[in-house]
């Protein structure tokens, strides 16, 4: 239960894990852009190849990454079915008729099948690359990365530092609060509370004996935490320095070049389509 907070993070010491989180965030953005720019299978194949290399380098088991797709399995199937049933295109990719079957607004066409496969692959790649970010980056590094990337907002007097501190504190409190919730739930269960059966109204009512103790202890917690922070000379952003400066290293340079190459490659494939599948869309 305590690990829910870090549920996504897969601890390992790898090239990808050690990349600057900012770079990983930018890389993810680049990768998603590339996936959307890719309008043919070669573009997607290029993306898949890079993703595969990243997964290998990260030492995250492949099965774990695939499992991320399972979470959106319904969406994937839904998209595929819609494409296959409603596409009326007449493109021919291989021998045989362009349209296999047609009835009222429904149709099964070659183009529909190809497009369905394409979209499914695109979705799967999207989910897999985003989950790679959370598998290989601790939540703390992620907030640091986000804070750093948002620095320009400071010029608009948006308190980015406070935002990041709050995010960090929230993250460090999650395991504490899940543990506490579990404890209180167990205590009330031992007193015969039932959270699993009954009508919705009944279940909402059943939450009260958990919520109130949680609230009461959270108020105590907040007070002590505030005192502890004040005692350690916290005064907001006044004259504050930061110990962890994210630094751009050689790994990050390689990562950056790889990302740039990917986007360029996909764009090139878009401009100069290759092969028979390249021309669709």
């Amino acid at each position: 239960m305590k690990d829910v907070a870090f549920g996504q993070y897969y601890p390992a010491d790898s090239f990808v894990h050690r990349l600057d989180p900012r770079l990983k965030l930018l890389f993810l953005i680049a990768f998603i852009t590339a996936i959307f720019l890719a309008d043919n299978f070669y573009g997607l194949a290029a993306c898949a190849l890079v993703l595969f290399a990243v997964i290998l380098a990260s030492r995250v088991p492949f099965g774990k990454v695939l499992r991320a797709v399972r979470g959106i399995l319904f969406l994937v199937i839904f998209t595929a079915v819609i494409q296959v049933l409603f596409n009326h295109g007449d493109e021919v990719y291989w021998g045989g008729p362009a349209v296999y079957w047609e009835w009222k607004i429904f149709a099964v066409t070659q183009e529909g099948i190809v497009l369905a496969i394409f979209l499914v692959l695109r979705l799967a790649l999207l989910v897999m690359c985003s989950s790679m970010l959370t598998y290989t980056t601790t939540p703390v590094a992620l907030t640091d990365g986000i804070e750093s990337l948002l620095t320009p907002l400071k010029w608009l007097h948006i308190p980015v530092h406070v935002l990041a501190l709050v995010m960090n504190m929230a993250l460090s409190l999650i395991p504490v609060l899940t543990g506490e919730t579990e404890r209180i739930m167990n205590a009330q269960k031992a007193r015969g509370a039932d959270f699993e059966t009954g009508s919705i109204f009944h279940r909402i009512k059943a939450i009260v004996p958990i919520l109130i103790p949680l609230l009461v202890s959270s108020i105590d917690r907040a007070e002590e935490l505030g005192n502890a922070m004040d005692s350690r000379c916290y005064r907001g952003d006044i004259k504050r320095t930061k110990y962890k400066k994210l630094r751009f290293g050689w790994r990050d340079l390689i990562g950056f070049l790889l990302g740039a190459a990917l986007v360029t490659g996909v764009v090139l494939l878009r401009v100069y389509p290759v092969g028979f599948l390249g021309s669709f869309l």
Partner: peptide, 29 residues
């Protein structure tokens, strides 16, 4: 004056040890 309080769970501002220890030193710049 450094004060250490009662509940070990209520005094940390970060999830990683060194980030938490750094907090006070960061605060005084």
């Amino acid at each position: 004056i450094g004060i250490v309080f009662q509940n070990p769970d209520n005094q940390t501002v970060a999830s990683i040890v060194e980030d938490d220890v750094a907090f006070g030193a960061e605060n005084i710049g």
